[in-house]
Design a protein around this nucleic acid. Sequence first.
DNA 1: CGAATTCGTCAACGCCGTTGACAAACAGTT
DNA 2: AACTGTTTGTCAACGGCGTTGACGAATTCG
Lengths: 216, 216
Amino acid sequence: MGRPPTLSRERIVEGAVALVARRGAEQLTVRALGEELGCDPSALYRHFRNVDDLHRAVGDHFLSDVDLTPRPREGWRATVRRMCVELRAAQLRQPRLAALVHSAPTRLGNELAFTEALLAALQRGGFRPAAAVKAYHALIELTVGSAAIDAAVAALPDAEREAEYDRWREDYAALDADDFPSLRAAAPHLYRGTADERFADALDLLLAGLVARRKA
Amino acid sequence: MGRPPTLSRERIVEGAVALVARRGAEQLTVRALGEELGCDPSALYRHFRNVDDLHRAVGDHFLSDVDLTPRPREGWRATVRRMCVELRAAQLRQPRLAALVHSAPTRLGNELAFTEALLAALQRGGFRPAAAVKAYHALIELTVGSAAIDAAVAALPDAEREAEYDRWREDYAALDADDFPSLRAAAPHLYRGTADERFADALDLLLAGLVARRKA
DNA sequence: CGAATTCGTCAACGCCGTTGACAAACAGTT
DNA sequence: AACTGTTTGTCAACGGCGTTGACGAATTCG
């Protein structure tokens, strides 16, 4: 009984997604969301404890983009790699939101499904539960951490981002060669290519380590 | 000429460090810092463009804790490992600050010194500049990312943090065994031990991958 | 001595998350 | 049909935040 609800958690999350898509994640405020939904901002507090609670729900919603269904001829390693790449992409899709989500597992639907799928792939790869969990933690720290780091620059338009990288390289290249010999030598290679490529490199290194360890 | 300054970037950063040490990083606001320094909050804007600029400076200051001097009998791998562990520890020392710093390299004094030392260690390990940079990016993404993830929980008192981990494990353990078989089996191992240990595990995996790749 | 410049102070703006009192809209009971 | 209780959105307000522009005090230069 009671007054019939015009809002719901689902409707609110949908509105938040639309808002993020249109105006960017940093514009996802209680007031803006109220306007988006055509209701008073304080109405949201009937459905969420606070903004953190809301952010977790929105973050979890974006996770639904990750494809968890195992592919036919895909080995465990390829599955793990693909899942991590997609997880990172999903997080980067709403950059500043990721920063709020990554601090603690949401333990909501999509995240649970992801975790289950990743652990299953690892166990398929021959890791026993304890080792699989270690691998899981390592993969998540790298993936989510990488997304957190790249979030800010990923939000920039392509041209601006490249300009930003150029600026960093210039700063490094302008250093005194006596004080910073290694850095000067490395300067032209720093921040080359896309952040996606850098992450993929790091992920492959970690996977190589996993395989090496598993055999030992 | 002009009115003699009572403030300076250094003095402000010192005040910020004291404030973070005493009241926690989330209390580092322009107003609180003004009170700490006994001046009007708006005075800070004579020395920093905005809070982001201030946060970067404070973040860089904390980096001075990292010991960069190479130890006598230390192999490159041990050096890299130790530097990454110390970098993460330094970032975790002021948790919420890390979240603001990690998005872009500050390219300030301490960070430059760190980068130089890490690249030097890698080159000592036989990595040529391009490969060393790849390794550097991978290590930084893992280390800084890990710090970003663990920052929120690291800020909690020990007892609360353990309670939080317990709560997560309970949530996972309470899942339906048919829908989440792997997760249920893994539940008792998840978030066991300290975040430091989990990071060290991940770092070792990455280093193992680096060594494996270097030989190939 | 004035002029120019630096820099801290003051008051204000607009934003944020959040709360408590209130009113509208329903269901169940009598 | 009237009363009661509950749910749910509205409204106004609070205290916090970063930031800005006008102002005055303190200094150096011509």
